[in-house]
Write a protein that binds this DNA or RNA. Structure first.
Lengths: 212, 212
DNA sequence: TTACGGAATCGAATGTCAGTCAATCATGAA
DNA sequence: TTCATGATTGACTGACATTCGATTCCGTAA
């Protein structure tokens, strides 16, 4: 600590930012490695280089930390999706792309696998973090006459749980990854678009996601 | 123990049946009272009038006991539904009635409320226990040209998670009970029937369920 | 009826954690 | 430099799920 440079903001505030960041980071690493339940607060605190008790001045409970971890994953994915879809013209396609991409991420990235138990936690985080986009898309597409949705929030809530359930089954190996296609079709059907249109929409080629 | 009457079957086998039954019973009572996590094996064992260690000669873990409890609830509900719907002629209506009834039960009976956390457990039990009926109905309705389902198991899996998610939100008070109607409509849309037909099907009057 | 081997049961003991708290330490204002 | 504030620490507590050696109970055979 001989050559600490004076920072524009207070030292405490800086450290708190670092600590919260480090904790979410460590939580993410440990929880996606061994699962939320098997992760211990001790290991997370150690990895974040923080006392075991300190965690509780940032997060009220282990569950709250888990939620923070998951929300970060969701928010980051939502932004990456948004970056691609804001060039789309068909609002229905925006929703289709979003849904599809979330499923690919959830089933493709090993780090999601362990998070996927605790379905309510994941689904709720997905609802909150991606909801603003998804609900907006559902409403846009409905206004455009493409979808027939009366309660976009409800439709999105149902979609999140379905996505989590199917993803869980896929990562467990009880369903093949190929069901993703049909899952998207079903989610589109649920928007009130016809089955044929849903199938067409789900089959469209889609651009790659920017890396994250 | 002076006047034990000799039973037709071995004493041990009889007691084992009683014990398993008593444990699932006690588990049901305690878990639906305070929630699966807050229920302690000690309390359940006490209520079943059995040593704490004995539980583990019937169920490998607390989770396995919880699953047994939930499966019993599901199976019983499935049978009660089946008793009503086998008089229906429209196969689509059978599915609609089933879905609707499960939601009413899940959101209406206080004893479900606490079970509803652990969404994966509930949804999986629902998938297994009611799946044989639901999948059959989906396939019947598809064969009749009413629904357009290619993978009935997948459609049912998605439905179970949606049902659990919405029910959870309703029992938490974050959604009004009135969303049940629209949820049924969406689940019917997901079968590939059109939106208008879905709405009509969901709006039909339905007979009462036999008590359980 | 009595004796015996093994299965079923018991419940105290174990180990693991999440979460607490009294003692320290660092920060920044005066 | 001094000191009050509040952030941090890590040993500790309490709660449980699960285990395991001791004990009881059954069914059988003499």
């Amino acid at each position: 600590m001989t050559e600490t440079s004076t920072k524009p903001k207070g030292r405490v505030a800086q450290r708190q930012l670092r600590n919260r960041e480090a904790l979410v980071d460590a939580g993410h690493r440990v929880m996606s490695e061994k699962g939320i339940d098997a992760a211990t607060m001790q290991e997370i605190a150690d990895l974040a280089d923080v006392g075991a008790g300190t965690v509780y001045s940032y997060f009220r409970s282990k569950d709250e930390l888990a939620i923070a971890v998951i929300e970060r994953v969701m928010r980051s994915l939502a932004l990456r999706i948004e970056a691609v879809t804001d060039t789309f013209s068909d609002p229905g396609q925006v929703y289709a792309f979003g849904v599809r991409t979330v499923m690919e991420a959830a089933t493709g990235d090993i780090r999601w696998k362990q998070l996927l138990n605790r379905a309510e936690v994941i689904a709720d985080a997905m609802f909150r973090c991606m909801g603003p986009f998804a609900i907006r898309d559902l409403e846009n597409a409905s206004r455009a006459g493409r979808f027939k949705v009366t309660d976009a929030a409800l439709t999105w809530k149902m979609a999140t749980y379905s996505i989590v359930g199917v993803s869980l089954a896929v990562t467990c190996g009880s369903l093949p990854r190929s069901v993703i296609q049909e899952t998207v079709v079903r989610l589109l059907c649920a928007t009130g678009i016809g089955e044929a249109d849903a199938r067409e929409l789900a089959a469209r080629p889609r651009p790659a996601l920017p890396k994250g």
